[in-house]
Amino acid sequence: MASFFSTSAARNMFYGGTLFSVLLFLGVTLHTESVLPQRDQRAQIATNPAIAAGKRIWEENNCIGCHTLLGEGAYFAPELGNVYKRRGPEFIKAWIQSQPTGAPGRRQMPQFHLSEQQLDDLVEFLRYVSEIDTAGWPPNIEG
């Protein structure tokens, strides 16, 4: 490696480069936070407590452990960010209530023993997620 810069120069580039990048990242973060309200459907969260309740059910049952939500999560089971549009609320509730299928060899989903209220809340959460502006993702309804 050519010696046209010293170790101290390299160290200073590290400090300077890192500081610049951190500041730039924080700056873009601030801008993102300021424009988010136009795309993240947050007004719904304030007026509809079912959404917050539904997110807690989503978390406490670790749905992300098999499914993806907006493409993030596990790849064992279908994308659920757009399942509200793909299947509708009644199907979603009926599906969850009837698991496991017990079909031999088929990937199985546990029975979570959710109450009617919990199912409604979860469906509201999934509806809210389906309305987030995701820049046209996924490419089609299959998710």
Binding site: F14, G17, T32, L36, G71
Partner: peptide, 22 residues
């Protein structure tokens, strides 16, 4: 490590394409 942080900090954005961000 300079290359790591300079590319990786804003590079976080490659997770921000389809999750509701600008």
């Amino acid at each position: 490590v300079t290359l790591t942080l300079v590319s990786g900090l804003i590079g976080t954005g490659h997770h921000y394409y389809w999750i509701g961000l600008p």
